[in-house]
Simulated assay, not measured.
Amino acid sequence: MKSLLKNLGVILVIIGAVILIASYATGNVNNNTILGGSLALTIIGLITYIICNKRIVD
């Protein structure tokens, strides 16, 4: 469980990046909902990564 929690931030950042790549590949770059959602996932992932790795010590 700790390994999943430790990698949760990285997983969220990767999901945000995949959404950005998929929207670019489909040509749907003018949809602010998709772009804002992926931005939010990326920022939440970065914050989660920082907080979880400060709190969890192996």
Rank of each mutant, 00 (worst) to 15 (best):
G9A: 05
S3G: 05
V13Y: 01
V29M: 15
L41F: 12
T48D: 08
L12E: 06
I19G: 08
G16S: 02
N31S: 12
I15A: 13
I34E: 02
I14P: 02
K54F: 09
L35K: 06
N32Y: 11
L4M: 12
L20C: 05
N32D: 15
G45S: 02
M1I: 05
I19K: 03
R55V: 10
C52V: 12
D58R: 11
A25N: 03
R55Q: 11
G37V: 00
L8G: 04
K2H: 11
G37D: 03
I15T: 09
T26F: 08
D58I: 07
V57S: 13
T48H: 05
L20P: 00
L5A: 13
V57D: 15
L4G: 03
I14L: 15
I44M: 14
G9Y: 03
I11P: 06
N28V: 07
G36H: 01
V13T: 10
I50Y: 10
I56L: 15
L20Q: 08
Y49D: 12
A22E: 14
S38Y: 04
I34D: 02
C52I: 11
D58H: 09
A40C: 05
S23V: 11
V10E: 14
G36C: 03
G37F: 03
M1G: 10
L4H: 08
N30H: 10
G16K: 01
I15H: 00
L39Q: 04
L41R: 03
Y49Q: 14
I15E: 02
K54Y: 09
G16Q: 01
T26W: 04
L12C: 09
S3E: 15
K6L: 13
N53E: 14
L12T: 00
K54L: 11
A17L: 13
C52F: 12
S3Y: 13
A25M: 09
G16L: 01
C52L: 14
A25I: 04
T26M: 14
N53L: 08
G36R: 00
I44Q: 02
G36W: 05
G36E: 04
Y24T: 12
V10A: 15
K2S: 11
A40V: 10
G27P: 07
I56R: 07
N32G: 14
N53Y: 06
N53Q: 15
A25W: 01
K6M: 11
A22H: 06
Y49G: 07
I34A: 07
I14K: 00
G27T: 05
K2A: 13
V13E: 08
A40E: 02
L8N: 04
I14R: 03
L12R: 01
I19P: 00
V10Y: 12
N7T: 07
D58T: 08
G9F: 00
I15S: 07
I51Y: 04
L8E: 02
A17K: 02
G45N: 02
S3D: 15
